[in-house]
Amino acid sequence: MIDLHSHMLPEVDDGARTLEEALEMAGMAVACGITHMVLTPHINLRHYPNSLESLTPVFEAFQAAVKSRALPLQLALGAEVRIAPELLMGTAWQKLPTIGQLNGKPVLLLEMPYSQVPAGTIELIRWLTQQQVQPVIAHPERNREVMAHLSLAQDLKHAGALLQGTVGAFTGDFGEGAKAAATQLMQGGLFDYLASDSHRQDKRSPQLSTVLAELNRAWGEERMLALTETLPWQIAQSKFA
């Protein structure tokens, strides 16, 4: 699996709390077959005012620690950016860590609040695509407004966004509403790729072997390969060149 959404980077958001916990999570990721990860700490002006400049030294230290443990896990730095005009409009988006490139365009992973699809989101997605940026909406199945009106997910895609589902949503990790929405979005072919959105050892861990095996049985190996390796690698490969 190529995992494009993880909060493994220690002590920068609500993910790994210590370096040792982050290293344990890296070992868990390797054990379940993850070979490459783009780490995506939150960038959220209110709660996690991270930046490329502040995250880079933390990432480099963690990358060195993973190498010192001889873990066969390739790492790159990205971010999960909370939708906000201050972060995305004008040229501000150019200072944000991307998760890779697709068709020559930088790819930004964007987070909506769980309660709603913010007013202006469709217009923002269209504007970003006009700037030759490829937006990705993280875990739409966990947004309460999308749960209630799945057509909103189609609207996001029609505006130009990719949709990233979370593996744990299919087993009820985020509640029955998110599970039902994830299943319906998968049935409708609306997910472009899946990711772990792992946070901690004991909560939303990167140990996905059992879940991925269940998804392979439910949706077929060919489709799961496309969702967990093919497109994720197309996006991320520039980060590992």
Results as ranks from 00 to 15, higher is better:
14 D>S: 05
122 I>E: 14
157 K>T: 07
1 M>T: 11
103 N>E: 14
29 A>W: 05
126 R>W: 14
31 A>H: 11
84 A>L: 02
152 L>T: 05
176 E>V: 12
36 H>Q: 09
127 W>C: 09
51 S>T: 15
112 M>F: 14
74 Q>W: 01
119 A>H: 13
203 K>L: 11
183 T>K: 12
105 K>F: 03
113 P>D: 13
210 T>G: 13
105 K>G: 00
66 V>P: 07
159 A>N: 07
154 Q>M: 04
45 L>D: 04
160 G>Q: 07
173 D>G: 11
155 D>P: 00
159 A>D: 15
91 T>L: 14
117 V>K: 00
90 G>N: 12
160 G>K: 04
225 L>V: 07
169 A>T: 12
138 A>E: 01
132 Q>K: 13
47 H>L: 11
87 L>T: 03
125 I>Y: 13
137 I>F: 10
33 G>R: 07
104 G>Q: 12
40 T>I: 08
210 T>E: 14
224 M>Y: 02
83 I>N: 02
208 L>G: 04
55 L>H: 05
133 V>A: 06
141 E>T: 08
111 E>T: 01
135 P>H: 07
69 R>P: 01
166 T>E: 00
38 V>T: 11
35 T>W: 00
166 T>S: 07
39 L>Q: 06
195 A>R: 06
147 M>V: 03
90 G>A: 15
174 F>M: 00
59 F>R: 06
219 W>I: 03
223 R>W: 02
105 K>A: 05
114 Y>D: 06
147 M>E: 15
70 A>R: 14
46 R>Y: 01
182 A>W: 02
58 V>D: 01
12 V>F: 07
56 T>S: 12
74 Q>T: 06
81 V>I: 15
233 W>S: 06
41 P>C: 14
156 L>S: 04
3 D>V: 14
10 P>T: 14
192 D>Y: 06
240 F>W: 09
220 G>Y: 04
45 L>G: 08
175 G>L: 04
9 L>W: 08
102 L>V: 10
224 M>D: 00
170 F>A: 03
13 D>F: 05
4 L>Y: 05
225 L>E: 14
120 G>D: 05
